[in-house]
């Protein structure tokens, strides 16, 4: 898929996910994002790291909300009030609130995941508008340097350990941190030298490859952005109100138009596979 279409889709999905706390809409966004990643993910993609990250982030949000919200009618247990922060009632309503918060974080993470799991990050950087092209190239080059720096950091840590380094105190860490940073800076300078030696900075550049632009990509981008705009308009008009499970859990209101806006996000998963 065209990286700009993916970027537009992610922006729309993120806008919907963060603008509402209704779990129905958040769940639909999350499922559409997951479907997109499964249908259009780059070859060789491993989903486990993403799913673990999302699950951990959502779980943390859930637990924090559960322990810090002490309102609600249906109480599980009562933590003594003199316990800092978490003292008070642990309620069903606060559990639901925590789950909805966790779902929001999951939806937001999944909404932006296609930027790296469906699009090639380098294609994405290349797709930046001309006035951001140099910044994009610098970012792309930095992305290239990251694996090298990660290996270098591990090597430095291992070798310093064998020289006798033992991190017993915070002030021991500069013995690893300093060479890592210095090496990163030197590597950046060397890479800059190499780029300059190949004519970088001569002015506007031509492009070897451009991402194919296909009518379907245009349809995905336009429909996603329109759907997000419509959803936000519905929110602004009050047709899609906030939802809170306090003091008792109310029924979940679902606006058909708002739901339709969320379901539009399934579109990129349905198109033909051009991989």
């Amino acid at each position: 898929m065209n990286p700009r279409a993916i970027a537009a889709w992610s922006l729309a999905a993120l806008a919907i996910a963060v603008s509402t706390n209704n779990p129905v809409y958040r769940a639909v966004v999350a499922l559409c994002a997951l479907n997109l990643i499964l249908a259009r993910g780059r070859p060789g993609l491993r989903l486990r790291p993403l799913l673990v990250t999302v699950a951990v982030a959502a779980a943390i949000a859930t637990v924090v909300s559960l322990l810090l919200s002490h309102t609600g009618t249906h109480r599980f247990i009562e933590v003594p009030g003199d316990v800092p922060l978490i003292g008070g009632a642990i309620t069903l309503e606060s559990l639901v609130f925590g789950l909805v918060t966790g779902l929001g974080i999951a939806a937001a993470l999944l909404a932006v995941a296609p930027l790296t799991l469906v699009a090639d990050p380098y294609d994405l950087v290349d797709a930046l508008p001309p006035f951001l092209a140099r910044t994009g190239a610098a970012i792309g080059t930095a992305l290239n340097l990251i694996p090298t720096m990660a290996r270098s950091a591990a090597d430095i840590r291992d070798a310093q350990r064998l020289r006798g380094w033992r991190p017993r105190r915070v002030r021991d860490w500069p013995d690893v941190a300093v060479p890592v940073v210095l090496t990163a800076v030197e590597s950046s300078i060397t890479l800059a030298e190499a780029m300059e030696a190949r004519g970088w900075g001569s002015g506007p550049r031509t492009h070897y490859l451009t991402a194919p632009r296909w009518w379907f990509d245009v349809a995905v981008a336009v429909s996603a952005l329109l759907a997000a705009a419509a959803f936000l308009a519905l929110r602004a008009s009050g047709a899609v109100p906030d939802w809170y499970p306090f003091p008792v859990i109310p029924p979940l209101p679902v606006n058909p138009a708002a739901l339709a806006c969320c379901l539009v996000l399934i579109l990129p998963s349905l198109g033909p596979d051009t991989r």
Partner: peptide
């Protein structure tokens, strides 16, 4: 390791040509 600008070989080889506006 410190001369590659792009992640893929073909793109990296073309880097200088892009700068020359070929």
């Amino acid at each position: 390791e410190l001369q590659s600008v792009h992640a893929r070989v073909e793109r990296d080889v073309a880097f200088g040509l892009e700068n020359m506006r070929v």
